[in-house]
Simulated assay, not measured.
Amino acid sequence: MSADNTTPETAPDPDDPRVERHTAGAFDIRNFIGALLGLYGIILTLMGIFGDKAYEKTGGVNANLWTGLILLLMSAIFMTWARLRPIIVPAHVEPPDDDATRPAPKRRPSGH
């Protein structure tokens, strides 16, 4: 409480449906991981179905097929996780101060 008996400003409740939320969307790392696992899963599944089974090397198991199916399952889990629990990007984040040791463009002074 401040001296003038007003209530302090509080952050909005993120679970409030009226608050507009901005999510990471396609830039969520779980989407990248899920896409890569899915791509490798498709390739290995197709190789397990159409390629050389190599049963003598794997002890009678079609390793490409089973590994591909497991990768597809893991891909689905990552994509579902990213969809059900999205990363919420804060509405306003202060940019970091310029660092003389960082070889990046410097921020321009305000007013330009």
Rank of each mutant, 00 (worst) to 15 (best):
Y40E: 10
Y40W: 09
I42F: 08
I42W: 07
I42E: 00
I43D: 06
L44Q: 09
L44M: 10
L44S: 06
T45S: 13
L46E: 05
L46G: 10
M47A: 04
M47C: 02
G48T: 00
I49D: 02
F50K: 10
K53I: 00
A54S: 12
Y55M: 09
E56Y: 15
K57Y: 02
G59M: 11
G59C: 11
V61Y: 05
V61S: 12
V61F: 12
V61I: 15
N62P: 02
N62Q: 06
N62M: 05
N62F: 03
A63M: 13
A63R: 10
L65C: 02
L65Y: 10
L65M: 07
W66C: 02
W66P: 00
W66V: 14
W66F: 12
W66L: 12
W66G: 09
T67C: 11
L69S: 09
L72R: 04
L72G: 01
L73D: 07
L73K: 10
M74T: 07
S75W: 02
S75M: 00
M79F: 08
M79V: 11
T80F: 11
T80N: 11
W81R: 11
W81A: 11
A82S: 15
A82R: 09
R83A: 14
L84Q: 10
P86R: 10
P86D: 04
P86Q: 08
I87T: 11
I88D: 13
P90L: 13
P90H: 13
H92I: 14
V93H: 06
P95D: 01
D97C: 00
D97W: 10
D98Y: 04
A100G: 05
A100H: 08
A100P: 00
T101L: 13
T101D: 14
T101Y: 11
